[in-house]
Amino acid sequence: MTTPTTLGTGEASTRLHELTVLDVRTPGEYAGGHLPGALNVPLDQIQRALPDIRQAAERGDVLVVCASGARSENACRILADNGIATATLAGGTGAWAADGHDLHRPEGAARSTWGMERQVRFTAGTLVLLGLILGLLVHPAFQLLSAGIAAGLVFSALTNTCGMAALLAKLPHNRPRAADLDNTLAKLRSR
Rank of each mutant, 00 (worst) to 15 (best):
R15D: 10
G83R: 12
A165D: 11
A56S: 11
L39H: 01
L167F: 10
T88C: 06
P106A: 06
V120D: 03
A97M: 10
L134H: 01
I46A: 01
A85L: 09
A186P: 03
T3M: 09
L39G: 08
D61A: 15
A147C: 10
C66K: 01
A70R: 08
L144M: 11
T3S: 11
M164K: 11
R59D: 06
A67M: 06
I133P: 04
L129I: 14
G69M: 01
A151Y: 03
P42N: 09
K170Q: 08
K170N: 02
C162A: 06
L137E: 04
D182N: 05
A179K: 09
D102A: 15
A70T: 14
V120F: 01
L127W: 11
R191C: 08
C162H: 01
C76K: 02
E18Q: 13
R189L: 06
N183Q: 14
T86R: 07
N183F: 09
G83N: 13
L136C: 08
L145K: 08
Q47N: 06
R189W: 05
H139L: 12
V120Q: 09
A90K: 14
A141W: 13
G32K: 07
G94H: 03
A109Y: 04
T20S: 08
S146E: 09
A151D: 01
S13I: 00
G91R: 08
L129A: 15
S146P: 02
A157K: 03
N183C: 05
A95I: 04
V65S: 10
G83F: 08
L7Y: 14
R25D: 11
G94T: 12
R111D: 15
D102C: 01
E58P: 00
L22P: 05
H101C: 00
G91H: 09
A169W: 04
W96D: 06
L50D: 01
T113P: 00
L136Y: 07
L43W: 00
A80G: 15
G115V: 11
V65G: 04
A70D: 11
F155N: 11
T161Q: 11
R121M: 13
L171R: 13
G83K: 09
E11L: 07
T6R: 05
V120K: 04
R105M: 15
L103Q: 03
L89T: 04
G125Q: 04
F122L: 15
R77C: 07
F122Q: 10
R71S: 12
D180H: 00
T14P: 01
L130S: 14
L127T: 06
G60E: 05
A179G: 02
R191T: 13
S112P: 00
D81V: 01
